[in-house]
Structures are given as structure tokens and as C-alpha cells.
Amino acid sequence: MMNNYRKTKTTTSMIHYHFVFCPRYRRKLFDDEVFEKRFKEIVRDVCEELDILVIAIECDRDNTQMFLSALPSISPSDIMARIKGVTSKRLREEFPYLQHLTSLWTRSFFVSTAENVSNELIRQYIDQQKTRG
């Protein structure tokens, strides 16, 4: 069994976050298996730099869900800003057909502690993104 507790000099922590976010204009970016694989690699690299444990990453055609465990010293907003910023920049550099885009992701995201989220709540968030640019 994987031990998800983190120990530092001052804290022991196990905060699991469930993040969901969508590509801008609901583009079907994750239809491309190479793109999805590279996206996951970059997310894992970013999380390693931030000392965040990646529990799972799942990609649907037009959204991604991530289960991450992080220390309380980094906020969910900071986690998303870093992941979205780095993945957007690197993926646009590596996939020429995306170079004309200024950003890959919407500015919004859904986050909850992993234990307090229902599938219905996630579905509501994803459906609401259909009307946003």
C-alpha cells in the first residue's frame, strides 16, 4: 500500500485534492494519444518540482481530472497556476498546430478535497464549461 503521508521538519500532511479543468473553447485536445501522454509527463514533472504526489491523472476528450496530494504550504490556486502555465507553454512549443493559441486552458478550474466530491458536482462543473470561452 502506498503511504501518502508527507513528513517535513514541521508538518505531516495528507491533503488530497481533486482538480478538474477544461481546454479553452472545449477543444478535444485529449483525442490525440501522443498529446495526452506528453501532458501527463509534464504534469508529473511539475508536481515533482513542487513536491506534490500524483495519485491519478485521467483525461477525457475535453477535460482532465487530477488527484494530487500536496503539503498545506502550497495553495490549490498556486498548484493549478503552475500546472496550467507550464503545460500550456511546453505543449504549444512541442505541438506546432497549437502554436497560434495564446493559452490552452480556461482560467477556471474545479477543486475539492478528494473525499468531499461527488460525480454529480464534477459533471455540473464540466457542463458549465460548455458555455465559457
Rank of each mutant, 00 (worst) to 15 (best):
M66G: 02
F19W: 08
L121N: 10
R44V: 12
A81W: 04
D78E: 15
C59T: 15
E94V: 07
F30K: 07
R38D: 08
R82I: 01
C22P: 03
F109C: 02
S112Q: 04
F35M: 05
A114L: 06
H100Q: 13
N63D: 14
S88H: 06
R123I: 01
Q99P: 00
F39S: 05
Q128F: 01
T106R: 14
N4K: 06
T87C: 11
E115L: 02
F95L: 05
D51T: 13
L71W: 02
F35L: 13
N119A: 14
F109G: 01
E115K: 10
R24D: 01
R38W: 12
R92K: 15
Q129M: 15
Q129P: 10
S103W: 09
S88A: 11
I74P: 10
T131W: 02
I57G: 04
R27M: 12
Q124D: 10
R123F: 03
D60K: 09
F109N: 02
I126R: 01
S112M: 03
V46L: 08
E36R: 15
K7V: 14
F110G: 00
I52N: 09
M2D: 10
C59F: 03
V20S: 00
D60F: 06
A56W: 02
I74Y: 10
S103N: 11
Q65G: 04
V111M: 13
F39H: 07
K89I: 03
R38F: 11
M66P: 02
R27I: 04
Y97E: 14
F67A: 12
L50V: 03
S13A: 15
G85T: 02
R107I: 02
I42S: 06
M14T: 12
Q65D: 08
T131G: 01
E58F: 10
L68N: 08
Y97C: 07
V86T: 11
P72L: 07
T102G: 14
R6L: 15
V111G: 07
D51L: 13
L98T: 02
D62F: 09
R123S: 08
S75F: 09
Y5H: 14
T102P: 04
N3F: 11
I15M: 08
S103I: 06
R82G: 01
K37E: 10
K89G: 00
C59R: 05
Q128A: 04
C22H: 01
I52P: 09
